[in-house]
Computed example of a mutant assay.
Amino acid sequence: MRGSQRSDVEERLVGADRVIAVLTELADHPLGVTLDELASTLKSSKSTVHRALATLRRAGLADLMGRGVYVLGDEYIRLALRNLGGRPETARVQPVLEALAARFGETAHYAVLSGTDIVYRAKMDPPQGAVRLTSVIGGRNPAHRTAVGKALLSTLVTQESQLVQRFGTSSFEPRTPYTITSTGALLAELEATRSRGFGVDDQENEVGINCVAIPVSVDGSGAATGAISISAVAFRCPLDRLVAAVPTIRAIIEEHLGPLPAIEAPAI
């Protein structure tokens, strides 16, 4: 490839990266963000950010509101929802989440492990009148302080060195007074998770919110592809009551998805 051609390709790649960076930043501002604010956050010139915004607007992926405020475009949201709704895992887990939310009057999630985080792929809030959580589809939380994360990590990790290798540290910043802050304590909790067959979050991610999570398989392989959880407001549903409901939760999940994968230590 000639030098001029290589430069053109590199410039296009850099331009694409800028567009993606602007798109990603817009997602963090549902109420809108100005050109000045975007340029400051992304440490780019206003002209560079403006060109990226123009590209996104032509595709319908960004909109310019009044007073120079930009938001994600309706076309972006339409595409994202169409993709999410068309995923086989969504079609399979959504009826389960609906049944769990209706049965317990609490929020049900389906989430997967992504590196050191869990990502919510589906969610069902309880009926009207109940307290609703702030979690969103596509949102992330650190795996070490969530029931879903611990349920899935317990199938992958048996040694503290593996946790350090995965998280890059032997300690964690506490989110609440109850957050596990060391890999040693996390390893002990993963062992307890394997023993009982489900993960627990005892107000570790958010004060006042308890959670239990059970690994599930939605692709027919029999292996855990993610976990389904019930998150409950602690004053209304203490953790011991949520744990006591695990057999019922299991039965509802198995009614829709079939046998659950076992939580077992990975072969070394």
Results as ranks from 00 to 15, higher is better:
residue 179 T to W: 06
residue 50 H to E: 04
residue 249 I to G: 09
residue 213 A to N: 05
residue 114 S to E: 14
residue 200 V to N: 05
residue 10 E to D: 13
residue 209 I to F: 03
residue 35 L to E: 06
residue 178 Y to P: 02
residue 145 R to H: 04
residue 50 H to P: 08
residue 84 L to Y: 03
residue 265 A to C: 06
residue 213 A to F: 07
residue 219 D to S: 14
residue 221 S to K: 11
residue 222 G to W: 10
residue 169 T to A: 12
residue 93 V to H: 07
residue 264 E to L: 11
residue 181 T to H: 01
residue 210 N to K: 04
residue 204 E to D: 01
residue 208 G to R: 09
residue 91 A to K: 15
residue 56 L to T: 05
residue 164 V to F: 06
residue 246 V to E: 10
residue 227 A to R: 12
residue 107 T to F: 09
residue 235 F to D: 10
residue 214 I to N: 03
residue 119 V to H: 01
residue 121 R to F: 00
residue 99 A to L: 01
residue 208 G to P: 06
residue 93 V to S: 04
residue 232 A to H: 10
residue 215 P to C: 08
residue 127 P to A: 11
residue 26 L to D: 00
residue 205 N to T: 07
residue 202 D to Y: 06
residue 36 D to Y: 00
residue 263 I to L: 13
residue 137 I to G: 02
residue 247 P to H: 11
residue 231 S to F: 11
residue 256 H to I: 03
residue 94 Q to F: 02
residue 210 N to A: 06
residue 45 S to Q: 03
residue 207 V to M: 10
residue 59 A to C: 05
residue 112 V to Q: 01
residue 225 T to F: 08
residue 114 S to Q: 12
residue 242 L to H: 15
residue 34 T to W: 05
residue 119 V to T: 08
residue 19 V to W: 00
residue 156 L to S: 00
residue 174 P to Y: 11
residue 230 I to Q: 10
residue 61 L to W: 13
residue 178 Y to R: 15
residue 92 R to Q: 01
residue 142 P to D: 04
residue 13 L to E: 12
residue 176 T to D: 00
residue 136 V to D: 01
residue 265 A to F: 08
residue 85 G to V: 09
residue 128 Q to D: 14
residue 163 L to R: 14
residue 164 V to R: 15
residue 152 L to S: 09
residue 98 E to S: 09
residue 47 S to I: 07
residue 157 V to Y: 07
residue 29 H to G: 09
residue 24 T to Y: 04
residue 46 K to Y: 02
residue 125 D to K: 10
residue 204 E to V: 06
residue 119 V to F: 02
residue 95 P to V: 12
residue 203 Q to R: 14
residue 93 V to K: 01
residue 183 T to N: 07
residue 95 P to M: 05
residue 226 G to P: 09
residue 80 A to W: 06
residue 61 L to E: 05
residue 108 A to F: 08
residue 139 G to C: 06
residue 188 A to N: 12
residue 224 A to C: 13
residue 244 A to H: 14
residue 240 D to L: 11
residue 199 G to F: 00
residue 197 G to D: 00
residue 186 L to I: 13
residue 31 L to C: 02
residue 254 E to M: 15
residue 256 H to W: 11
residue 55 T to W: 00
residue 137 I to Y: 03
residue 132 R to L: 07
residue 142 P to M: 03
residue 143 A to W: 02
residue 117 D to C: 00
residue 214 I to M: 05
residue 1 M to Q: 04
residue 4 S to A: 11
residue 116 T to H: 04
residue 53 L to K: 06
residue 73 G to W: 04
residue 186 L to C: 11
residue 67 R to Q: 05
residue 61 L to D: 02
residue 208 G to T: 10
residue 254 E to G: 15
residue 71 V to E: 03
residue 214 I to K: 07
residue 192 A to G: 05
residue 97 L to D: 04
residue 14 V to L: 11
residue 37 E to D: 15
residue 170 S to V: 09
residue 9 V to F: 06
residue 145 R to M: 12
residue 65 M to W: 05
residue 127 P to I: 13
residue 196 R to F: 01
residue 157 V to G: 03
residue 68 G to K: 00
residue 241 R to C: 04
residue 195 S to F: 02
residue 59 A to D: 08
residue 80 A to S: 09
residue 265 A to G: 05
residue 231 S to M: 11
residue 83 N to W: 04
residue 43 K to I: 11
residue 65 M to A: 15
residue 1 M to K: 08
residue 102 A to F: 01
residue 203 Q to L: 07
residue 66 G to M: 01
residue 144 H to A: 07
residue 117 D to N: 15
residue 154 S to I: 08
